[in-house]
Design a binder for these strands. Structure first.
Length: 789
DNA sequence: GGAGGCCTCGGAAGG
DNA sequence: CGAGGCCTCC
C-alpha cells in the first residue's frame, strides 16, 4: 500500500483516524465520510502493527459489514479476512458456539427467528388458556424482548415489583409467567432467539471470568458503527469486552437515531461520556454529499428537536437548487407528478434511472408510485418485503436441516413432523406433547421411545413415527461427515419435500420448486467455494481444507435476514423504499413523498414528544439522502384502508426554513392523451426508452411476490360448477372402491384413483373430469357410484 | 386433509 | 382495500 490515506482526509477525520489508544467517540453528521473514517482507521491500526485478529468491528446489518470488509480488503488485501467483523448478533453467536456448554447449551444450538419465537409464544398462550386478544403474541414477545435487552432474566422479571404492578394494572398479570415458560421452552429446545444471543453473551462474560479475560485479551481494539442504535445489553457487553484495554471507538449520529422503537437507546451516547471520563470526542461536521440548500434545510428541521448533541453540519458544495414542493390532489396524482418529474429531470440533466430514489414512510405508499412509473415506462425496483429465507418452502427445508443438526429444535419439528404428509396427525402430536409433559421430556424424546407400551397410540401410527425418527437420525449421521450439499440434497429428496413441490404444477408451486433448487444451488456454492452467494460476511474460515458441513452452512445463514436480492442483470432502475431502509444510502435526486399529518409524522407518534422527535430524525435522514435535488410531495387526499380521506400537509414542511424552498407547485395531470400512455407505442419510440416494466422477473426477485406486484397473477380458470341432478342420492361410503366411476355433487363425474386409510377416516383420490385430482374424505364426500368396477 | 368463507386488523424493521 | 388467521364444511 503506497498511497497516503491520511492525505485523503480532512482535519477532524485525520484526528479520529490517528487516535488509537483509549476511548473515542466520533459524532459523524450525515454525509460526513463516516465509512471512510471507519475503514481508514482500521487500515491505520494495521499499519501500526496491530494484528487484525485483535480488532473487533461491529455493525448493525450484514450489508454494512460486508461492504466495509470489502473496502478494507481493497486496501490491505487478504489480511482483511482475519478481522473480526460482523453484526453484534453474528459475532456473539460465534462466541457462543464455542462457549455455550458453559451455560448449558449445546454448541449446535438453534437460533429462533422472530417467526419461531412468535409461534412458540402463541402455543404457550393457548396452553395456558389465556386470551390471545389480551395477550397478543407480538406484544408478549415485545415485552420479553425488551426485558432481555435490559438484561432482565425471567426471575428478575418476576421479582421486579414495578414490572409486576405494571402488568397487573394493564390487565396482563401473566406476562411474567409467559416469559418464564418461554425461556424454559427455548432452553429445552436448545434454542436461542435474537435477544438471547445478547443476553446469554452477557451472562457468559459475567459469570465466567476466564472467558471474559480470554476475549478481553483477544479484542484489543473495538469499533462500533451506528452507535446511536445500540441497546442497553449491547452497551454493557461492549463495556465488558473493552474493559481491559479501553481501546473502544464508537461512531454514530444522534440525529439519525431512528430505531428507538426497537429498543435502541440514544442515552448510550450520553452515558458513554460519563462512563469514560478521558474520552476523546471527534466531530465530523463537513458534509460532502449534498448542496448547501439541502444541508441547510436539514439543519433547520433538526433544530426543532430538543434532545440533541451540539453539532453544526456544513458544506463546501454548491448552493444547488431550492427544494421543490409538489402538492397533488390525490395519492395517484402525487405518483403521476413524481413520475413526470423524474422523466423531465432525466432528460434535462442527462441522468440515469438509478440516480433517483423515491422514499416513503410506509410500504403501502409504493403502489401509487409504481403505477405512475409503469405508465411512463420508467423501470424501478422496490426494496424491502419478504426475504428469500422467510419463504415458506425455504423455511420448510431449513427446518429439516435444523432438526437434523439439533433434534430438540421444537419449532423445526412442529413444522415438518407431518409435512409432507406422513399420517402423523394433530391428535397424535397432542398425545406426544402430553406424554412429554408427563415425562418432563421433549416431544422428540417421546418420539424416540414411541414403542413404549404406555404410550396410547395406534400401532401403525407408532410405526410412522418410528420411521420419521429413523430418517431424521440417519440425516444426523450423514451430516457429521458428508459435505453440506450432499446432505442437503439427500434430505430434500428423501424427505419427500422435493417431490411434493414438484407435483404441484400451479404457477406458485413451480416457483416454490425453483426456490428450493435455488437454495440447493447456494449450498453447493457454499460447499465448493466456502461462501454462499447469499452469505453473511463470513468470519474467518478456521480451516479452509476441512469439509464444509451442513451445520457450517446453517451457522452461516442463521442470522441472514437481508439476503441480497438477485437482480435481473439490469440495474438502471429508480429505487423505491421506506425511509428506514434508505439509511446509509445516497442518490443524486431524491423524492420524499407523502408529507402529510398522520402519515409523516405517523399518527401513532404525534402524542409523545419522544416519538415525534424520532419521526423528525426520520425526516432528517430522508432529506439528507439527496446529493443534488430534493423534491418533497404531499397529497390532499389519499386512499387508506379502502377509504378516501383528506390530508393536511405535514408540520415538518413548515419546519423547513422557507428560504431554502421554491414556491409550492400544485400539480395536475396533463390532459389525457387520446391513447393511454401504456398503449402508446409512439411514445416509446420518440423518447428512445425501452419498455422495461420488470419483464424478466427472476425466481426470487422480490417483485414477483410482494403485495405491491401489480402484474395480473395467472389463475387457472375455474370450471363452471357441476349441476347435480335433483334426485342426487349418495351411496354408502363403505362401498366405494378404487377404479369406480363416481359422481360428486359439486365436482361431477370422476374416477377413484386411490383409497387410503380405514373407514371412517379413509380418504379417496378422485380424478374429476376437467378438474384434476381431488382428495376427499369419504365420510363427507357423499359420492354416488356411477359405474362399479 | 384442504378449499373457501368470514373476521379482524392495519408502522417502520436488523439480527 | 387486502393479508392472514381461524373455522367450517366437504
Amino acid at each position: 500500500m503506497n498511497w497516503n490515506y491520511i492525505e485523503q482526509l480532512n482535519e477532524p477525520q485525520q484526528q479520529a483516524v490517528q487516535h488509537i489508544k483509549g476511548p473515542a467517540m466520533i459524532i459523524a453528521g450525515a454525509g460526513s465520510g463516516k465509512t471512510r473514517v471507519l475503514t481508514y482507521r482500521i487500515v491505520h491500526l494495521m499499519q501500526h502493527g496491530v494484528d487484525p485478529f485483535n480488532i473487533l468491528s461491529l455493525t448493525f446489518t450484514n450489508k454494512a459489514a460486508r461492504e466495509m470488509k470489502n473496502r478494507i480488503a481493497e486496501i490491505v488485501g487478504d489480511e482483511a479476512r482475519n478481522l473480526w467483523m460482523g453484526t453484534f448478533h453474528s459475532v456473539f453467536a460465534r462466541i457462543l458456539r464455542v462457549e455455550s456448554e458453559k451455560i448449558g447449551y449445546p454448541s449446535s444450538f438453534t437460533i429462533y427467528d422472530t417467526d419461531d419465537a412468535k409461534s412458540l409464544i402463541k402455543k404457550i398462550i393457548a396452553e395456558q388458556e389465556l386470551d390471545d386478544k389480551v395477550y397478543k403474541p407480538s406484544l408478549v414477545l415485545g415485552r420479553i424482548s425488551s426485558a432481555k435487552n435490559n438484561l432482565f432474566s425471567w426471575q428478575d422479571y418476576a421479582n421486579h415489583i414495578e414490572l409486576q404492578n405494571e402488568d397487573k394494572y394493564s390487565g396482563k398479570p401473566k406476562l411474567g409467567l409467559l416469559f418464564e415458560l418461554y425461556a424454559k421452552r427455548c432452553f429445552k429446545a436448545g434454542a436461542m432467539d435474537f435477544d438471547d444471543l445478547l443476553y446469554n453473551t452477557y451472562i457468559l462474560l459475567k459469570n465466567f471470568p476466564d472467558v471474559l479475560n480470554k476475549y478481553q485479551n483477544k479484542f484489543k481494539y473495538v469499533m462500533v458503527d451506528e452507535f446511536q442504535d445500540t441497546n442497553f445489553a449491547q452497551y454493557v457487553i461492549l463495556r465488558k469486552l473493552s474493559a481491559q484495554h479501553e481501546n473502544i471507538c464508537v461512531v454514530g449520529d444522534d440525529a439519525q437515531s431512528i430505531y428507538a422503537f426497537r429498543g435502541a437507546n440514544i442515552q448510550n451516547i450520553l452515558n458513554f461520556e460519563k462512563d469514560y471520563p478521558d474520552l476523546k470526542t471527534f466531530k465530523l461536521e463537513q458534509n460532502y454529499r449534498s448542496t448547501k440548500n439541502i444541508v441547510s434545510a436539514a439543519n433547520s428541521v433538526i433544530a426543532n428537536n430538543r434532545a440533541q448533541l451540539k453539532k453544526e453540519v456544513w458544506t463546501d458544495n454548491t448552493e444547488g437548487d431550492k427544494i421543490k414542493v409538489l402538492r397533488a390532489i390525490s395519492d395517484n396524482e402525487e405518483g403521476n407528478a413524481v413520475a413526470r418529474q423524474i422523466f423531465e429531470n432525466k432528460m434535462n440533466d442527462r441522468l440515469l434511472n438509478k440516480d433517483f430514489a423515491i422514499l416513503y414512510r410506509t410500504n403501502a405508499q409504493s403502489r401509487s408510485m409504481e403505477e405512475a412509473l409503469r405508465k411512463l415506462n420508467i423501470p424501478y425496483r422496490v426494496y424491502g418485503g419478504v426475504s428469500f429465507f422467510q419463504r415458506k418452502e425455504i423455511k420448510d427445508l431449513l427446518a429439516y436441516f435444523r432438526l437434523t443438526i439439533n433434534n430438540y429444535d421444537e419449532e423445526a419439528l412442529e413444522r415438518i413432523y407431518n409435512y409432507p404428509t406422513r399420517g402423523i396427525g394433530k391428535t397424535t402430536y397432542e398425545k406426544l406433547f402430553i406424554k412429554a409433559d408427563e415425562w418432563g421430556a421433549t416431544i422428540w424424546d417421546v418420539m424416540e421411545k414411541i414403542s413404549e407400551p404406555e404410550i396410547d397410540i395406534a400401532n401403525n401410527t407408532k410405526q410412522k413415527i418410528a420411521d420419521f425418527v429413523t430418517s431424521i437420525k440417519s440425516y444426523s449421521i450423514l451430516a457429521k461427515n458428508q459435505n453440506a450439499y450432499e446432505v442437503a440434497s439427500h434430505i430434500a429428496q428423501s424427505s419427500g419435500l422435493l417431490r411434493e413441490l414438484f407435483n404441484d404444477k400451479t404457477s406458485e408451486g413451480i416457483s416454490h420448486y425453483e426456490n428450493i433448487q435455488e437454495l440447493l444451488a447456494g449450498i453447493k456454492e457454499f460447499t465448493e467455494n466456502g461462501n454462499a452467494p447469499l452469505s453473511a460476511p463470513s468470519l474467518e474460515i478456521e480451516n479452509a481444507e476441512a469439509t464444509r458441513l451442513l451445520t457450517d452452512y446453517m451457522q452461516d445463514i442463521a442470522l441472514l435476514t437481508d439476503a441480497e436480492q438477485k437482480d435481473d442483470g439490469y440495474n438502471d432502475k429508480v429505487s423505491l423504499m421506506t425511509v428506514h431502509s434508505a439509511k446509509g444510502l445516497e442518490f443524486k435526486n431524491v423524492f420524499v413523498v407523502g408529507l402529510e399529518e398522520n402519515l409523516f409524522p405517523s399518527q401513532l407518534s404525534v402524542n409523545s414528544r419522544e416519538e415525534l422527535e424520532e419521526e423528525r430524525r426520520l425526516f432528517y435522514v430522508a432529506i439528507t439522502r439527496a446529493e443534488n435535488k430534493l423534491i418533497i410531495s404531499y397529497a390532499m387526499s389519499r386512499f387508506r384502508w379502502g377509504n378516501l380521506i383528506s390530508c393536511e400537509p405535514s408540520r415538518f414542511l413548515e419546519e423547513i426554513d422557507p428560504k431554502y424552498l421554491s414556491a409550492p407547485e400544485t400539480v395536475m395531470s396533463e390532459p389525457k392523451p387520446k391513447n393511454n400512455y401504456s398503449k402508446n407505442n409512439g411514445w416509446k419510440a420518440t423518447n428512445g426508452y425501452e419498455n422495461f416494466n420488470e419483464s424478466s422477473t427472476p425466481v426470487f426477485s422480490k417483485n414477483s411476490f410482494t403485495k405491491n406486484n401489480l402484474k395480473p397473477v395467472s389463475k387457472t380458470p375455474k370450471p363452471a360448477a357441476f349441476k347435480a341432478p335433483t334426485d342426487f342420492l349418495p351411496d354408502n361410503p363403505r362401498d366405494i372402491r378404487e377404479g369406480m366411476n363416481v359422481m360428486h355433487v359439486k365436482f361431477g363425474v370422476g374416477k377413484v384413483v386411490k383409497i387410503e386409510g380405514n373407514f371412517p377416516d379413509n380418504k379417496a383420490t378422485v380424478n374429476f373430469q376437467g378438474q384434476g385430482d381431488k382428495q376427499l374424505l369419504l365420510k363427507y364426500a357423499r359420492l354416488k357410484i356411477v359405474e362399479s368396477v
